[in-house]
Amino acid sequence: MKRRLLALAGAGVVVLGLAAGAVFLGPTVLRPMMMGNVAAPTGLDMASSRLTEAGLFWVSYTPEQDPIRINQIDSWILHIETADGAPVTTADIGVDGGMPQHGHGLPTRPAVAENLGGGDYRVEGIKFQMPGWWEVRFTITADGSSDVITFNLVLS
């Protein structure tokens, strides 16, 4: 009798636990694909300071707005160093980007407005007009060598 009772009590606790789980986790568990806008892929490198694809430059960006908001035109300070840490002060910089999941580019044509010296460059005209996963790609050419870095942003 005692063992049967214990078993029943145990079952009750399990059911209660399941109920609590349903209450607190249910919404997210039951609706993992809630956003019709395709979710950004997992494992994106979101770092704002990274080595370029072929390893030639270290590139970091600092947006003027913090956090970055959609529909607000912004400037970024781009800092470029060689892979071994020397500032790159004479870079030619191309900017493009877009939303890979939507197949469109940036809503503006950002460009370097000023070489600030010390490896810093002011990039003006950066804007995002939708929530979701964005790429911003810089093509950097210095001393006859070119390399590319693609930064990821996920905006809400």
Binding site: L8, L18, G26
Partner: peptide, 19 residues
């Protein structure tokens, strides 16, 4: 003990329904 288990089950069912 039976009543206690019953009460537990009822509470669980209520919580599930509420959720």
């Amino acid at each position: 003990a039976g009543l206690a288990v019953g009460a537990l089950l009822l509470a669980a069912a209520t919580l599930i329904a509420l959720s």
